[in-house]
């Protein structure tokens, strides 16, 4: 599978490097550092998952969607509700999380976003307001208490990649983190297939490149807009469902992912979907390594500053296609 190649290559490289390094220093430090690089992959998985929906609503549709984090939150709450009411396994709730958030996304597009195309400032304000309303509504229904989502028992535990003589794991990655990475890469693959290989994808690209011409050629642009926005929101919902068992489920949880998702999309470049992968790899690993050498808050400052510098010199992000304007 295309989706798996990069990480497995990365892992085997790591192992090789680790063996060499251990021969050289025999130290514990390099093991920790490699563990950290692997941890970075775990962060990358979450960034990719949370950024993917935004790559569609902002990257493809150019909607400044400040309510993206709230759609992640809604996905997490859908998982909570289905688990609480029907005792469903977390994995089984994922399609529901996608459906419910996609439907809410479609309603939002129909009632709010549709009226604001071409007005980025109003869109920004409207989606910001929407994020406050969504948080408030969730708080009214579910109260402000943190909610408990059960992780599937078969995803607990660790995959040891390297063990010491006594059998203790030196380098390991948890099954749940691997699961997140697999879901994220699979979703990226599916999305890329939809966008580049299906007629719906062609229509979306046609509409974003030249709306009037697409309309003239008989594309139902309103339907395409609604479908695309709903799909982006649905992806955010899946992200919420998947991370709910590893993070904290509460009304303000979306805010935590909003900034990261924006950084990923802007860094990677908004034109190509694969930019999300590049953006999350870069930001995730940079965060992991800097946070390890210094500390978490400092790492955030440095990475944010680096992103600002980057968009100063490459406003279109890392992956751009030359366009005639």
């Amino acid at each position: 599978m295309l989706a798996f190649d990069p990480s497995s290559v990365f892992l085997s490289n790591l192992l090789l490097a680790q063996e060499e390094a251990e021969a050289a220093t025999g130290g514990l430090d390099i093991v920790t550092l490699l563990n950290q690089a692997l941890n970075g992959v775990g962060i990358v998985g979450i960034l990719l998952l949370t950024g993917l929906g935004l790559a569609i609503t902002f990257g493809v549709m150019r909607i400044i969607n400040l309510a993206h984090g709230e759609f992640i939150m809604l996905g997490a709450y859908v998982t909570f509700v289905f688990q609480d009411a029907f005792g469903m396994d977390l994995l089984m709730t994922i399609p529901f999380a996608f459906l419910v958030t996609a439907i809410i996304g479609a309603v939002v597009e129909l009632t709010i976003i549709r009226r604001l195309y071409g007005n980025p400032l109003e869109t920004l304000l409207a989606t910001w307001g929407l994020s406050i309303v969504l948080q408030g509504v969730v708080k009214l229904i579910f109260t402000a208490q943190l909610k408990y989502v059960k992780a599937p028992p078969y995803l607990s535990g660790n995959l040891p990649l390297l063990s010491d003589d006594s059998g203790g794991a030196l380098i390991s990655i948890s099954y749940y983190r691997m699961f997140i990475i697999v879901v994220a890469l699979a979703l990226l693959g599916v999305t890329m297939y939809l966008f580049y290989k299906t007629s719906w994808g062609r229509q979306i690209r046609a509409v974003t490149q030249n709306r009037d011409m697409a309309k003239c050629l008989g594309v139902n642009t309103k339907l395409v807009d609604m479908g695309t926005f709903a799909y982006g929101c649905g992806l955010a919902g899946v992200a919420g469902a998947v991370i709910s068992a590893l993070k904290t489920v509460a009304p303000p949880m979306g805010q935590d992912y909003l900034v990261d998702a924006w950084m990923v999309v802007v860094t990677g470049g908004v034109d190509k979907l694969i930019g999300v992968l590049a953006g999350s790899l870069l930001i995730g690993e940079a965060n992991a390594v800097i946070a390890f050498i210094l500390n978490d808050p400092t790492a955030r400052v440095i990475v944010l500053a680096a992103v600002i510098v980057l968009i100063r010199y490459r406003p279109e992000g890392l992956f751009t296609i030359q366009k005639r304007s």
Partner: peptide, 20 residues
């Protein structure tokens, strides 16, 4: 001795430092 920004939910780095 490690600190994380208020509201952080990603602790993989701190946990790795604890392991080390």
């Amino acid at each position: 001795d490690e600190y994380a920004a208020l509201g952080t939910t990603e602790f993989i780095t701190i946990i790795n430092k604890i392991k080390a």
